[in-house]
Simulated assay, not measured.
Amino acid sequence: MNEMVQPITLYVDADACPVKPEIYRVAGRHGVKVFVVSNAFLQVPQDPLIERVVVGSGFDAADDWIAERARRGAIVITADIPLASRCVKAGADVIGPTGKPFTEASVGMALASRNLMEDLRAMGEVTGGPKPFSQKDRSTFLSALDVAINRLKRAGFGSGAP
């Protein structure tokens, strides 16, 4: 059997991601490669499994970079619903920072809700933003990421570490 096992890869929409330390910890435990994608320079740990990707400042440049690489065996971490939709369609597992997975079934509803909220905000009907990020969100996220990596390993994907 000379077939190479396709590695699990994590793509982080990093500009406003509140769970980067958790991602590094889980990825390190599983030996999974992480691409930290942002429009601006971000500090990342010195680790061969963690790679910083600074894209241009163009609108959606980070989203486009991630979406072009999304595939089965990839896990995308984002709160950006249009990006989540693109990645789910490409076969990637997509998890929001609160641990909520985006699926084929949920992403359409999430897009519709997002558009409705955008319209209500534009009309001045809704002025608040999302609720503050909590410790419960953090632990739900850790669990969801662990589950996604283990599910991909069972499906035959491997860690990125040699």
Rank of each mutant, 00 (worst) to 15 (best):
D119V: 07
L120F: 08
R121A: 11
R121L: 11
R121E: 11
A122I: 01
A122V: 01
A122K: 11
M123F: 07
M123N: 13
G124F: 07
G124L: 07
G124D: 14
G124V: 09
E125R: 02
E125L: 04
E125M: 05
E125F: 03
E125W: 02
V126H: 00
V126N: 04
T127C: 02
T127W: 06
G128D: 12
G128N: 12
G128A: 12
G128M: 08
G129E: 04
G129I: 08
P130Q: 09
P130C: 04
P130K: 15
P130D: 05
K131G: 12
K131H: 12
K131Y: 03
K131L: 10
K131S: 14
K131N: 12
K131C: 06
P132A: 15
P132Q: 13
P132W: 12
P132G: 11
F133T: 03
F133L: 06
F133C: 08
F133N: 09
S134H: 14
S134D: 11
S134I: 10
S134R: 14
Q135L: 15
K136G: 07
K136R: 12
K136C: 01
D137P: 12
R138I: 05
R138M: 10
R138Y: 02
R138T: 05
S139A: 09
S139V: 09
S139I: 10
S139Y: 07
T140Y: 10
T140D: 13
T140M: 13
F141N: 07
L142P: 01
L142R: 15
L142T: 15
L142N: 13
S143H: 13
S143K: 15
S143P: 01
S143T: 13
S143C: 09
A144R: 14
A144M: 09
D146G: 13
D146S: 14
D146F: 07
D146V: 12
D146L: 10
V147F: 09
V147Q: 08
V147T: 14
V147N: 04
A148W: 01
A148S: 11
A148D: 05
A148Y: 02
A148T: 03
A148G: 03
I149H: 03
I149P: 03
N150V: 03
N150A: 08
N150Y: 01
N150P: 00
N150L: 11
N150D: 11
R151S: 06
L152D: 06
L152G: 08
R154N: 02
R154M: 04
A155H: 04
A155T: 00
A155D: 02
G156V: 07
F157R: 04
F157K: 05
F157W: 05
F157H: 02
F157E: 01
G158E: 00
G158L: 02
G158C: 05
